[in-house]
Simulated scan of single mutants.
Amino acid sequence: MFDPACGSGNFLTESYLSLRRLENDILRETVLDKAGSGVLGFDEAAYSPIKVSIQQFYGIEINDFAVSVAKTAIWIAESQMMQETEGIVHHEMNFLPLTTNANIHEGNALRMDWKEILPPGDDVRIMGNPPFVGYSLQSKEQKDDIRNTYVDANGTTYTTAGKVDYVAAWYFKASEYMQGTKIRTAFVSTNSITQGEQVSAVWKPLYERFHIEINFAYQTFRWNSESKQKAAVHCVIIGFCAEHTHEKKKLFTNEHKFDLVDSINPYLLNAPVVFIESRKKPLSNIPSIVKGSSPVDGQNLLLSEEEYLEALKKDPELSTFIHPFLGAKEFLHNKKRYCLWLINQSPSELKKHPFILERGAAVRDFRLH
């Protein structure tokens, strides 16, 4: 198993524990003699009943402290399961001191060659919960990560790469890594990559260049945790591969219900793979959409109702230059807001009002910086 954004190792640890519990269940049925007195012919020097090892679990994490936590967590899990196995085979398992290696690598997964960490093979399974960072909230380094990852066969960054969620880069890296194999990948993600303009930007390169196929998906669900300050995040889970399969796909509509379907598209619907892309011209004979009101003044020309009343108290003649400002927020919530409207006003008249001069200087400083 490979988690290329493993954090403190929860996915790796839980997967290891689940597989080892299954293995112990098998040992109970197959290794013990009928009387349950012990292992038949068990020779520790020549044979170990344990086939699932933490050496089969790989991860990448950028935070050094989280790397240490992940390694420790999986070692503790190994110790716990060894003790459980001892109780089944009635034989002491010598696993201390710890000699097995937890393959957790420190670094930026988007700047690393995954094949050097774990050579791709049909038995590899990738899963994880890569970071959710919307494109408007990404740091310069994160934007650079996206640009360096979302590149075409010639190494040129896709033009839409600047408007995708950070998590999308892991989908690209995984699709690239899986080429020519039967590897399966599953990621927890924000549902933003399955809605609106991001769908084409995120998924079209993966379908056209890597020929991926979605094998199963959980439609949007709210992220739940025991934290008192729960994040207001809506997530999806998407499983995919880089080969064409004829098997039915599982489309989960809630935790306990799924439909078997022929196809799951990037909108997580039982429908053909079609991308709805932005266009500058309307399909029908209707007026084109134009850009609406988009203030670029650093909010210095806008006034709250309190600011408006205070300004008029000091200078009643300002009423000539202040008009109501109505946007979606004001319309929906019955809020009052105002703006300085200085079009077609003479400079000599504007200079008579310190409030206007003050706000104008603030706009100028905002645009300069």
Rank of each mutant, 00 (worst) to 15 (best):
D3L: 10
A5E: 03
G9R: 00
G9S: 06
T13R: 13
R21E: 07
E23C: 05
E23M: 02
E23F: 12
L27S: 04
L27F: 12
T30M: 04
K34E: 08
G38K: 03
Q55L: 01
Y58F: 15
Y58R: 02
G59I: 01
A66K: 06
S68H: 07
S68T: 04
V69R: 01
I74N: 01
W75P: 00
A77V: 00
E78Q: 14
Q83E: 15
T85M: 10
T85L: 07
G87Q: 03
V89M: 10
H90Y: 13
H91Q: 13
F95W: 05
N103A: 04
E116W: 13
E116L: 13
P119W: 02
P130D: 05
Y135N: 12
L137Q: 14
S139V: 11
K140A: 14
Q142C: 08
I146R: 05
T149M: 03
Y150S: 01
V151G: 00
A153K: 13
Y158R: 03
Y158P: 07
T159D: 14
A161N: 02
G162E: 02
W170A: 04
W170C: 03
A174T: 10
G180Y: 09
T181E: 04
A186W: 02
V188D: 00
S189G: 08
E197I: 11
V199P: 08
V202A: 00
W203V: 03
K204P: 06
E208R: 10
I214H: 00
A217Q: 10
Q219T: 15
W223Y: 14
N224F: 07
K228Y: 03
A231T: 15
V236H: 06
I237T: 06
A242I: 05
A242G: 09
E243T: 06
H244R: 08
T245R: 11
T245V: 08
E247F: 09
T253E: 13
T253M: 07
N254F: 03
N254D: 15
K257R: 10
D262F: 04
S263M: 06
I264T: 01
N265K: 12
L269D: 10
I276H: 13
E277A: 07
S278A: 12
I286D: 02
V296G: 12
G298F: 01
G298R: 08
L302E: 11
L302G: 08
E306V: 14
E307R: 10
A311K: 07
L312Y: 00
E317L: 13
L326H: 08
F331C: 02
L332S: 10
N334L: 04
K336S: 03
R337Q: 15
L340R: 10
Q345D: 03
L350P: 11
I356F: 08
L357K: 06
V363C: 14
R367L: 15
L368M: 08
